[in-house]
């Protein structure tokens, strides 16, 4: 094969406008071309939708799964809760993500005023997710990340958090504390 000039298609002399303008001067040609182009668009669109729409559901699938456990999770005995200061209680919960089930340990602060009514507060700061701890001197939950302080009932005392500590529904059965919605 010779050099480029021998090539069958030279860009400058390639099959360009003129021949097409020949056809577009013909009304029949225009409508035919529009019909063809329209059909291509419809078929292409159908294929794109045929994959695209299922793909959206497919990608979004796991987010639709129930993330929050609806069962009651046992924390421990009521007698282990100190009425003077919030008690950190640990429990494990099984989380399912897709085909994987993982066991997670989590902690909540349990407070009580009278020994019969219990409040369970998350130990996760609502600002950026650091773990809070109870500080007796300030009589509040202290977050070390940005020096935020929550009151004993979970409301924000000082600092950047946008909302109070999350609380969980609690119940007492056979002397055991249960929470829901972890």
């Amino acid at each position: 094969m010779g050099d480029d000039a021998d090539g069958p298609v030279d860009e400058k002399v390639g099959p360009l406008g003129p021949s097409i303008e020949d056809e577009s001067s013909d009304d029949q040609g225009v409508s035919r071309r529009k019909l063809l182009a329209g059909s291509v668009g419809i078929m292409g669109g159908a294929i794109a939708a045929g994959i695209g729409v299922p793909a959206v559901f497919y990608v979004a699938g796991p987010s639709q799964e129930q993330q929050v456990a609806q069962e009651w999770v046992r924390l421990g005995s009521v007698t282990s809760v100190d009425s003077a200061e919030p008690t950190l209680m640990k429990a494990t919960i099984e989380r399912r993500a897709g085909y994987l089930t993982t066991t997670e340990e989590f902690s909540v602060f349990v407070t009580t005023e009278n020994g019969t009514d219990f409040v369970a507060l998350s130990n996760v700061c609502t600002h950026l997710g650091c773990r809070v701890r109870w500080v007796e001197e300030q009589s509040g939950f202290f977050c070390p990340c940005h020096n935020a302080v929550f009151n004993r009932d979970g409301s924000v005392a000082t600092g950047p958090p946008p909302r109070p500590l999350d609380s969980f529904e609690t119940k007492v059965e056979d002397g055991q504390i249960f929470i829901k919605g972890v």
């Binding site: 299922p54 793909a55 497919y58 990608v59 979004a60 699938g61 639709q64 897709g98 085909y99 994987l100």
Partner: peptide, 27 residues
């Protein structure tokens, strides 16, 4: 997006794609 190339998980993830994910069977 879901497949994991590790023997146990490969099978489990393909099974998850096929049987549980919406339109996984189609993809």
């Amino acid at each position: 997006l879901y497949y994991v190339p590790e023997p146990q998980q490969a099978y489990a993830s393909v099974s998850y794609i096929t049987n549980e994910l919406p339109f996984g069977w189609l993809i």
